[in-house]
Nucleic acid binder design. Sequence first.
RNA 1: GCCCGGGUGGCGGAAUUGGUAGACGCAGCGGAUUCAAAAUCCGCCGCCCUUUAAAGGCGUGUGGGUUCGAGUCCCACCCCGGGCACCA
Length: 863
Amino acid sequence: MATHSKDYDFSSIEPRWQSRWAENQAFTAEPPSPKPKYYALDMFPYPSGAGLHIGHPEGYTATDILCRYKRARGFNVLHPIGWDAFGLPAEQHAVKTGTHPAANTAANVGNFRRQIKALGFSYDWDREINTTDPDYFRWTQWIFLQLFQRGLAYVDERPVWWCPELKAVLANEEVVDGRSEVGGHPVERRALRQWVLRITAYAERLLQDLDGLNWPESTKRMQAAWIGRSEGAEIEFMLEDPRLGSLKVFTTRPDTLFGATYMVIAPEHPLVEKLTTPANLAAVAAYRRQAAAKSDLERTDLAKDKSGVFSGSFAINPVNGQKLPIWIADYVLMGYGTGAIMAVPAHDERDYEFARKFDIPIVQVIEPADHSNNGHGQPPLPYTGEGNLIHSDGYSGLPWPEAKQRITADLAAKKQAKPTINFKLRDWLFSRQRYWGEPIPIVWVSQADYDRAVAAGISGLPPEPVAYEADGTTHYALPLPDSALPLELPEVESYQPSDSGESPLANATEWVDVWFNPTTGETRPGASPCPATGLWLSGRRETNTMPQWAGSCWYYLRYMDPRNRTAVAGREALDYWGTPDIYIGGAEHAVLHLLYARFWHKVLFDSGLLPRDEPFQRLFHQGIILGEDGEKMSKSRGNVVSPDTIIASHGADTLRLYLMFLGPLEAMKPWNPRGIEGVHRFLLKVWRGLIGDDGAIHERVVTCGGHEPAELTRLLHETIKKVTDDIEGLRFNTAISQMMIFANALVKTSAIDRASAQKLVQLLAPFAPHIAEELWHRLGGEGLVQAAGWPTFDPGLLETESQKIVIQVNGKRRAEIEINKTATEADVVAAAQKQAAVVSQIEGKTVRRVIYVPGRILNIVIA
RNA sequence: GCCCGGGUGGCGGAAUUGGUAGACGCAGCGGAUUCAAAAUCCGCCGCCCUUUAAAGGCGUGUGGGUUCGAGUCCCACCCCGGGCACCA
């Protein structure tokens, strides 16, 4: 079955073994069994037209090494791949060419598949999935309906990013610095009806559960910061004019309440109109118009320069009855807390800046605790550090955390405050006005029809109806029953969104306007007469589609049981495979994808569908591979390296090895085209160390024992230990170094036992599987190398009788001695004192101290 | 501005709990082989002083500190990369 090449001919060896693996179904995951399982997950790619980027095989090689290693160790391995194939680039291509995005997507997937197969990854191709496949997105839609039913999906008018150039609505994450992420076109704000998922309901758990995860700390911190939990209190301020009621603010610093000198409400705050006195009407109106015109970008970018107007009204400070002027300013955001604050300029940088600009009094109420000791006057304001209260009747002298508790409790007793927790995390804007996404399986009906559906007892309804108002009528959301899934995309004439921003689906009137039977999910064209029998409602389909995140929120579940027709995945598969044992992918998904997937997973866990409440126990980010010039690879820079080129010139094994040898997996590292020769030479060295010029086994490989030098045996066992430890720790670069060291010894040795040679090949197999299979076969190995198990090392062989001790004088290395392991400190000192270099250093000096670290170092300290 | 991560030869990078800095590889230099070249093999390869060698001095971004001993720990600073950015 091996090739007949005499020298290392990767171009014939690699395809040969790839087809052999396919024929043998070598990487097909076994059904659930008592065998231990190992599930390694790659972030599946978006199949772009550009083909595989060198960064893809970096992470994929890492998981492949782990999987091949685990298979050798007897694990039942699940190593799947698929395609995250909905998305904007395919849609834009469709708009441009008029061809269906599915055609383009299929072509790209074909290209990606070819490239990935050429790298020899041990994927279970029977489990390949594609998010655009109706058999797949049927379950994406099903999960959406679970969210809907649990009251976690609702509709709302939301200002969204509209890009006139792309004629598309963009999500926040697709807008960078006021421009579209794709193409860099300017964007503006528009209010549109949107689906929103209530991820904030899970904020607390999403934050709490980060604790137990084996993730990069930086990623956990980023998620925690994104969720942004902050503890404080909502405090109610009565308005000076009691007819106007009260104003609620959120603050994390109730202890500074005596320092409040004004209030601020956001320009969008509902009380703005009531609070504005006639004299200020014009100024306020002008300011609101100005604020509304500002994009979020401008609002944050011009952050340095505070702006605002006085409303003319006052609020009453609940602790001291003082009158506080109420300002309107856009540095307060309507979307957070109550959209109103109490401003304490002495202890908040933003309030300080504002107060200085508008000449508002600044009252200090906290002083540093050690202030009285240093006696150097007041701290510079604004002072945001720790300290004790001053100028706060009844609380002065208290440390601030205690004052915070007491003031909150005292006001709470009077029903003027309540302890509150706020999150920065916002609900997830879940709809897109696009064609190439999962249709949202919802039909809109009138209130009367909704009531009829309720009366008919249809299932899947949320606790509260989801509805919106337009043109004076209210529309109610009815879910498609499971039996009507998948809801497929209709054919459309144009993929171009309308200028109004509605999805291209809105133009598919036959699909959109229907007679809908909420019990069976059946529909009939709306233009035809209402069917005579059964419950038929006049409905309009939802025309928004889901964002690209949807399909990737749960794909790791589908891999466990990808052809299941009746569930996301069968219970047995879910219980056996659990969740991935490792998930490797780029750090660019640190927040959004990983947070959204955690959210969905928790919802499904709450539905009793999943055995565990976190999807990714262990997460690892591979680093970015930069171009030769140290810059990010990009077409425009012309520094892109294609895997195809390298495979053609050096082979997949060399590419895999080199990607791992570049540096630590997590590091950002530049591509050096000359470095690849080094690892290629290493493979050649292994080949020539084991295979003679005639293509037969090299004469140094002996079958009868006793000829292999003990040194080589010891090095082999050191190598087994090092490679094993390094694979477990994802330190592939140093594992390869160690194999190189062994290869250097191999070509110098006169003899190596065949069993030792086979062990070397087994160690190499996860990294460079093709050459390893070939050598394994030529060395007489049975079957595939992965079936041969994993070599173990003999700790006894790693022991030596003598040891090297470094001799230092005053901490500087002066000599080293080789001495028996049984030597005592006195023996070592005596031996050291015979060393010429030591003698010349200590001659005529007094030895003050001797430090001996057994087996390592002897330090002689002299005066 | 705030929060992380990182600065080690010409280059990518190694270095247990603080214990020989520079493993492995690239590039470079010298040699062997060759008519010649490629490939391959052998040797050298942090910097400085020294004709050479021996010996020595200096070296992990900068400046201090702790320690018998610091790439590793502490303090201050500089530079690079990433994230967040009026969230009260």
